[in-house]
Amino acid sequence: MGATFDLWKLIKTVLFYTAVVFIVVVSVFPFYYAILTSFKQGTDIFRISYWPTSFSLENYQAVFSQGSFPRNLLNSVFVASVTVILALFLAVTAAFALSRVRFRGRGFLLMVILAVSMFPQIAVLSGLFELIRALGIYNTPWALIFSYTIFTLPFTVWVLTTFMRDLPIEIEEAAIVDGATPWVIITRVFMPLMWPALVTTGLLAFIGAWNEFLFALTFTSSNDTRTVPVAIALLSGGSQYEVPWGIIMAASVIVTVPLVILVLIFQRKIVSGLTAGGVKG
């Protein structure tokens, strides 16, 4: 009896760890393979291998020397950073109002904000296109900063509202008794307490803006103004049939590695940020 029980337990353990290994391999392998490919040289790329066989930086040199990839990288950094800073700036005060002050229509307003953040962006594309051309910012980074507000702002407001709601009410009341106005409460009491939340929210919004494709594809038209996702999508070789896989993989690794590192550093905070508002029993 004891022996069969142990066997069953062993099978369960083996199955469990098989599942664990499977999850890890499936998650990591595509990225691993992209890195592997990016270090291959010339026709080596077309020889399938599961383990590193050669090491060459040729593709990386190509990415930075050919075309406008460095410029695209700068564009992406600039657009994502400015978008996030603007969104956070507007969202912090709005989140205070939504989480700390009771007024009629607050619940409705929160639903509208959530709805906008989940908006199908294509639904506003033609209207935005007209507006962006009218503002004279078509094919500039400002067009992207402007349009990205549609998803970064509601997102940051929503997440910061849920974070701010969890700050202890007595601290705010102590500040009120001390004579603090709402503005002082936000800037001198809440903000210092919320910086982890601000970093998390900012990071998530940054990733969103960094990865955005539809607006970037539509509102920029020249190599110099594109962001990296568009640049990678449109990377092409000498002829239509010659896809420069090595260069594409090198570019992919370059734009992904910083994100992966950031995400791994902040992983706990990111999980809490993702679940904020979503999961609350």
């Binding site: 999850i23 890890v24 998650s27 990591v28 595509p30 990225f31 393979y33 992209a34 990733i207 960094w210 990865n211 494709f213 990296v228 996702p229 568009v230 990678i232 999508a233 594409i248 993989m249 992919s252 734009v255 992904t256 994100l259 992966v260 950031l262 995400v263 791994l264 992983q267 990111i270």
Partner: peptide
């Protein structure tokens, strides 16, 4: 490990 697919930009994962 499972955060890696999430962190990779959609365009990049499409290309990969």
């Amino acid at each position: 490990a499972i955060l890696i697919p999430w962190a990779i930009p959609t365009i990049v994962s499409a290309k990969m």
